[in-house]
Design a protein around this nucleic acid. Structure first.
Lengths: 203, 203, 203, 203
DNA sequence: TAATAACCGAGACGGTACGTCGCGTCTTAGG
DNA sequence: CCTAAGACGCGACGTACCGTCTCGGTTATTA
């Protein structure tokens, strides 16, 4: 592969400055208040450099998001499924709240308006997050704490659907109460016979 | 009320032309492919008239959407709660599918990017739709077909969350199978004892 | 003449308010910073009323100007031509200076850009002012203080041309020195032999 | 001077197209009938490019005017002052007449309404024209054909004042008669003793 | 060690749309 | 018939970003 490395290599300095500028600007003015023009200005970089490496501003912001997400450690298991589930939901709900909510909402919005970014967002962000929970549920089923017939895919969808609805519609807060209720619902729908008593949507 | 009737009255002709033009343009070029400029041009109307009455193109499209939704007959009751529920969900899911899906997605996106429109969208569209289902559920509880403890608010949220997730994430289709499963989930979580047999999320 | 007085008569209140508002606005924001819209707003009058009575904003401003000019007393004669001339020039130059200069400049500008107003301005303002000086010169000639061959028209043009040049070009001030020099020039060009000694452009 | 040559250089093609379009449009529809919008459209240029280089349409037209004026050969000297003067005045008056008169009037109007342009117009157009005549007069004085005490500045002002008055007020034509009379006046006011006979304002 | 190539900043370019302003006309209700 | 109010179609304003396109300069590798 001698084709590698001919010419000046890509500047990591520029890349980092761009990601940083984009993240900061989104934090300050919201996703809609950011433009390629502004990112370039703020990062001290030419627009050409932006367009050479990213097709849209959404791609830049997404790269920053994934960089950040990579720093988060994967949930460690306690051995007890329900405890793991509740902890996972607690963390996930908390991570989607606060000032992250606006960013997530803006990214979901961008995914609707730009097909290219939408595909990337669904495949590289949403699907990955779903997968973590799905595996947790499959493990729970294998351990006998969930019904043998429990549909992990459907339950996962239900959880993230509820989460995103609150992020996008803001009809109710993303708090501990919410995460506990999500867990209750899961257990009510799919908890194995020996664990199902009086939990439920009545809570 | 002396301020009424002063000055030239608002032109209904113009309003109708604008709504029609906006709807047609969205149908042809997608929400993102529509501009205030184009709506004005197409409707044979000045931009000033647009801005006089609507703050955003999203508001125009939303008004068109509500006009259309008003034409849809309210769910007629059969007397049997579960049948009513299943019919409501079937219709709602069908109405959110097809080419409407993209439009709804675009409106939800706009709601994230523009606070003013977001508020209007949540209050005048989302909340209204939720209310219809909520009342249906309350009625079902009153009839004894749902648990006395059933949380109508939470169940409503669960339904629309699931619906919007499919609209926005497109991980699975908005078909009859989906609407039936939503109904199953509701009944599994809140169906009264005498009606609860083997329905459920296991499906 | 029964056609007189059919219907509501023109409102003098409105007329006065309009002229006053226009004058004030010109004083505050300059002629260019005034619009029909603003005059109507400021005078508490509908735009319709403006357009019914005046074709352009220049016409309104001009009417105000003539109203004001009518209040200025005509120059009284002392019997000595040169003294009368010098006084006239002193007053005229002074009246064109200060904050009036900007207004005059703006009106002359408007006269260039709007043919209708231009005609009115030339006939009802410029020509009238010229006439006063022309008559003064004719009188001076009749008294023998000016050459029999003196061309009153040309001298008048020379005076007002110089005056307007300073108003429009602002290459030098509209002060007493200027008015005296104008008088000197007149006398140098057309003073009768017995009065012509060492006045002149050398001053 | 390291800032030179950075970035894409200004397009001379665009500049030329703009000046040409502006000149043509002024010729066709008059100064008032031209807009930045139209110039951009006609020149096949974006509005941004106009505003990047010129603050006002008046500035564009002025640049065109100066370009054109630069093409006019400077007054060649014959050695005889009075002949030079008469030729200069003849040419200048002719150049200010005809269809140029309306353009000049419009520019002078614009100079009154826009301070920025006004300054440019006075410094880069009016002052330059005055300077040519002033130098001619100084030369005439040095040659002894004008009084030693002749005030070149004042005489110059008198000439251009008269010229502009006819341009703006249109009380009389800009013809050969006018230019000759201007020359007569100059000679009457400042011609040296040996040349002063019976010329004068009596004409 | 020189040439080559891909990079980088700066910034001008043709476009499209923005949201605002003022124009002159019109359509009401009311004096 | 006049007036105030105010909506209307129209057209231009000046600005913001878009994505593309030269420029002059700056590193690296490769010949």
């Amino acid at each position: 592969m001698s084709a590698r490395g001919r010419g000046r290599p890509r500047s990591e300095t520029a890349r980092a400055a761009i990601i940083a500028a984009a993240s900061r600007l989104v934090g300050e003015h919201g996703y809609g208040g950011v433009s390629m023009e502004a990112i370039a200005r703020e990062a001290g970089v030419s627009k050409q450099t932006l367009y050479r490496w990213w097709p849209t501003k959404a791609a830049i912001v997404l790269e920053g998001l994934n960089d950040a997400a990579a720093a988060i450690a994967p949930a460690s298991s306690t051995g007890r499924f329900e405890a793991d589930l509740r902890r996972f939901l607690r963390r996930t709900v908390a991570g989607a709240g606060g000032r992250n909510a606006k960013l997530l909402a803006a990214l979901m919005a961008a995914a609707q308006l730009d097909d290219g970014f939408g595909e990337a967002f669904r495949a590289e962000f949403l699907a990955r997050r779903r997968e973590v929970l799905r595996e947790l549920l499959v493990l729970g089923r294998r351990r006998g704490e969930l019904d043998e017939t429990a549909d992990a895919e459907a339950l996962t969808e239900l959880v993230f659907a509820s989460l995103w609805y609150r992020v996008l519609v803001r009809n109710a807060p993303l708090d501990g109460d919410f995460s506990e209720r999500l867990a209750d619902t899961i257990m009510a729908l799919a908890g194995s016979a020996r664990g199902r008593h009086d939990h439920g949507a009545s809570r």
